[in-house]
């Protein structure tokens, strides 16, 4: 087992200051390591990888790594990624989002990216909290947890990211943890390699904002919690309902082989532009079109 850290160093930006901004013991660095190892294992060149990140702690990951990187607006990473992938399908587009990013403000973009099966890999770094803004509850904060904005305990239920993505039609859905890094490397590599929309939820600790208020004083405490509660899916399924408690299954949840949207579009374009095919004038909206839409709109304005 050598060459793990040195390999990572090769992919970091030499003109960025290190250590990075994350708190001591933050899982985001581990995710970055896993991402780099996965990309290296797949033999991708730095130029063909595009990292699109949202806002929040997770969004800061992009700046440190020497790929094409875009740090977008809050929650919109997937929309930018969709544009980049459609504009240049040869790129491997990977989005890095936090749970606030992907599930709250960008929830609509996430389910639509999954539905249209765009060939983008989404890493959702779930730390159950809004870390960068100071520890407010997020859509994945467990019920009962204490945060800055739920001082008396969270009353709302948390999203199950994996189930949501699967229901929205994602091609691949995975969950990994920052403690089970070997598995995480494998999941991330698979998610990048496979066609269509692939999502990896990554359980990562935030002891600074989440743990501190919920009986996990240090990073080590949080990692112990992850070690104890993240169990492989097969094991989890075998557990009786009563013993599951806080436990979360990790592993592969969905693996389908549908073509990505950019592939389907490419095929359509090739069909339409086949040489020898008579060039038909594209259909123009008829003269009455505006008039019709006007009439319809008068009845039911948007």
């Amino acid at each position: 087992m050598a060459d793990i850290t040195e390999l990572i160093h090769d992919y970091l930006r030499h003109n960025k200051k290190f250590p990075h901004v994350f708190c001591a013991g933050c899982g985001h660095g581990i995710v970055l390591g896993a991402l780099i190892r996965s990309i290296h294992a797949l033999g991708l060149s730095k130029d063909e990888v595009c990292i699109v990140a949202g806002i929040g702690c997770s969004g800061r990951i992009a700046a440190y790594v020497d790929f094409n990187t875009v740090h977008t607006t809050h929650g919109r990473a997937l929309t930018f990624a969709t544009g980049i992938k459609m504009a240049n399908p040869k790129l491997k587009v990977i989005t890095i989002m936090g749970d606030g990013d992907a599930m709250s403000i960008g929830g609509n973009h996430l389910i639509h990216a999954a539905r249209r099966n765009i060939g983008v890999t989404a890493l959702v770094l779930n730390n159950n909290i809004y870390g960068m803004t100071g520890g407010q509850c997020s859509a994945t904060t467990p019920q009962g947890a204490t945060t800055q904005t739920t001082p008396f305990g969270q009353m709302e239920k948390a999203f199950d990211i994996v189930t949501l993505a699967a229901a929205a039609g994602a091609n691949g859905v995975y969950r990994g943890s920052t403690f089970h890094v070997n598995m995480l490397d494998r999941l991330v590599a698979t998610a990048i390699e496979r066609p269509g929309f692939n999502l990896v939820e990554i359980i990562t600790p935030c002891h600074t904002q989440y743990g501190r208020k919920n009986k996990y004083k240090s990073a080590v405490d949080m990692f112990k919690w992850i070690k104890k509660n993240c169990v492989p899916k097969e094991k989890f399924d075998a557990l009786p309902e009563a013993d599951r408690g806080e436990k979360m299954p990790i592993g592969t949840f969905v693996e389908k082989d549908h073509k990505g949207l950019e592939q389907l579009y490419g095929e359509l374009q090739a069909r339409l532009n086949r040489p020898g095919r008579p060039v038909a004038e594209p259909e123009q909206p008829s003269a009455q079109h505006a008039e019709e839409s006007r009439n319809i709109m008068n009845k039911e304005p948007k």
């Binding site: 850290t5 970091l12 581990i30």
Partner: peptide, 19 residues
């Protein structure tokens, strides 16, 4: 025992283990 755990789990890429 050169298991690689610390290298993989160091969030700051601060540990290098070499043969």
């Amino acid at each position: 025992i050169n298991c690689g755990f610390c290298e993989r789990h160091c969030p700051d890429f601060a540990i290098v283990v070499r043969g």
